[in-house]
Structure formats: structure tokens, C-alpha cells
């Protein structure tokens, strides 16, 4: 496999749920085993017994089949005191891991897929926002994103215009910062960590770091799982299943600037696991 995605870090388990017996899973088509070996220690091994590098961060166990050239990306907000860290769990989706990330970066679908929750007609317009590939960090960023939401979060009582920022620090991970209703001026953090099982099958591990002192943990998890299950009904019905990186196969508009930058960034790095390169 010459794809440089092999050297990236991927989530493969929830740390809080991992015991000594561990779990068998798949990473980029390779069977691996992940298990707890101590109170703060885990091991990941390939079928032939080769040990893989591991990290425990953001509630998840991370590993790589290759030789990571960079440390796992930082989410500075994750360590801020007062945030509730929410392990949402896992949603298996029969789609390309890259399609799952691209859907997470999209706001225009809110009124149609997350109707009356994250969006509602007639509030469908996507205003112009800023997108850039930050060269120093080598990350895709979208800022000044705004959208009207009937119920932006579990803690939101009525409709508000929500501000967003999106960040793609790794090919199958995205971090979303959004207006935090109980604390104006702060950002809630919602992440999408995607484990590529194969090029057309993935496990999606959402994770959150919220300023929400009131909501029941179960309700927070249910809210986020409902959102991702609505997304799954879309992701499993897109044709082709892989993300087309060649222009011409799909037609973006100005609302899709984040997606356009993400595809361009993937192509530039030759991150093609889960991509379709030749229009068919």
C-alpha cells in the first residue's frame, strides 16, 4: 500500500470500554486486536503479532498501520477545565470514510436531513464563509460559518443562529466548534473520528467536549446518535460509494467550499483510501 494514509492515526476503540480481553477490529482492511494491558496502557497488534503504535486521547484508543510522521493532532480545548467529555459510541456506516467526513463538514443538508433539529425550511440559505488550507498546520479550516437552527444542541431551548468553525486535522477526522448556548463566547467541541475498516465501510466515533452542566449524559449521547443515524441514511445511499476526487463527477456550489477544499487537500497529499480517482 503506497497510500500515505497508512501513516496516519486512527481511532479503533473507546478507551473507557476496552478491557483486557480487548476487541478484534479492522483497520484499512487489516485485522487487528486492541486490548487493555494496564490502567493507562493499551496494546494494538496485527494478525501476525506485530505491535502497532498506540495513543490514548480524546476518550479513544488510536493506532496506525504505518509509521506516523506526526504526533496525533492536538485539540487544546479538550483539556480545558469545566468541559464535559462525552463518549458517544460508535455508528457503523457502509460508506467511504472520506464521504463520512465530508458530510460532517456540510451544513446545507441540516434543514432536510436533521429537520427541525439542526435546520428547518425556509431557513436554508448558506451565507458566504471563509475557507483556507492552513499551510503551517497543514489543516483545512472553515470559519465564520453561520446557520439558523431550531434546536442547535440539547441545551438550546429555541431557534438561534449558530456560529461554526470546522477543522480537518487528519484525513478521516474533523473537529467542529459551535456556539455554546449556556456560555456565550465559548465554543462547544464536537468531533468526528472515523475508523476506516475498508474503503467502503467505516466505524464513526463521535466525541464531544461541551460546556453543558445540566443535560443528562444519556440524553446527550442519544441526541448525538440520533443526528448520526440520520446522516447514515444519506451516506449509505450516495453513488458512487467512494468519494470522487476528480472534478466533473459531482457539482459543488459556494455552500460546498469546505468540501471543495477538503477534496483538494486530500488530492494534494495523495490521501486516496476511500476515494474514486477516475470518473466512471
Amino acid at each position: 500500500m503506497s497510500d500515505p494514509m497508512i501513516d496516519e492515526w486512527y481511532p479503533v476503540a473507546l478507551f473507557s470500554k476496552l478491557d483486557a480481553a480487548g476487541r478484534d477490529t479492522l483497520l484499512m482492511g487489516h485485522p487487528i486486536h486492541v486490548a487493555r494491558t494496564g490502567s493507562e496502557r493499551v496494546a494494538a497488534t496485527e494478525a501476525d503479532g506485530r505491535s502497532l503504535p498506540v495513543r490514548i486521547r480524546y476518550g479513544h484508543v488510536w493506532t496506525s498501520l504505518g509509521e506516523p510522521k506526526k504526533e496525533l493532532f492536538d485539540i487544546p480545548e479538550a483539556d480545558e477545565p469545566g468541559r464535559r467529555l462525552v463518549d458517544v459510541g460508535v455508528v457503523r456506516v457502509r460508506c467511504s470514510p472520506l464521504r463520512a467526513v465530508e458530510n460532517f463538514l456540510d451544513i446545507a443538508h441540516f434543514p432536510f436531513v436533521h429537520t427541525d433539529i439542526l435546520g428547518a425550511e425556509p431557513h436554508t440559505e448558506v451565507e458566504k464563509y471563509d475557507v483556507e488550507i492552513r499551510e503551517k498546520e497543514d489543516e483545512v479550516w472553515a470559519t465564520k460559518v453561520k446557520f439558523f437552527q431550531p434546536q442547535a444542541a440539547k441545551s438550546a431551548a429555541g431557534g438561534i443562529t449558530t456560529d461554526y468553525m470546522y477543522r480537518v486535522p487528519a484525513p478521516t477526522c474533523s473537529v467542529l466548534y459551535k456556539t455554546c448556548p449556556p456560555r456565550p463566547g465559548e465554543w462547544d467541541v464536537i468531533t468526528l473520528f472515523v475508523q476506516p475498516l475498508t474503503e467502503e465501510l467505516c466505524d464513526v466515533w463521535p466525541w464531544m467536549a461541551l460546556y453543558d452542566d445540566e443535560a443528562d449524559m444519556t440524553d446527550l449521547i442519544h441526541f448525538q446518535q440520533m443526528i448520526f443515524l440520520q446522516d447514515r441514511s444519506i451516506l449509505e445511499n450516495q453513488i458512487p460509494r467512494r468519494l470522487p476526487l476528480d472534478p466533473g463527477m459531482e457539482i459543488p456550489t459556494r455552500a460546498d467550499m469546505t468540501s471543495v477544499a477538503y477534496r483538494r487537500w486530500l488530492k494534494r497529499h495523495n490521501y486516496t483510501y476511500g476515494a474514486q480517482l477516475v470518473a466512471q
Partner: peptide, 27 residues
């Protein structure tokens, strides 16, 4: 054709309003 040209979503999952077919993904 059962594919929205925008993001490839199946239009058979969409909805009919008046004299038009809308895609369920972005409308």
C-alpha cells in the same frame, strides 16, 4: 436518473412537491 448530480444521493429517497422532485440531502 436515480442520482442527484450534486453529491450523488439517490433521488428515489427524495420527495415530491408540486410539479418537482427534490433530493432529500440538500433539497
Amino acid at each position: 436518473s436515480d442520482r442527484c448530480p450534486h453529491r450523488g444521493m439517490r433521488l428515489s429517497h427524495g420527495f415530491v412537491r408540486g410539479e418537482a422532485l427534490a433530493c432529500i440531502y440538500h433539497g
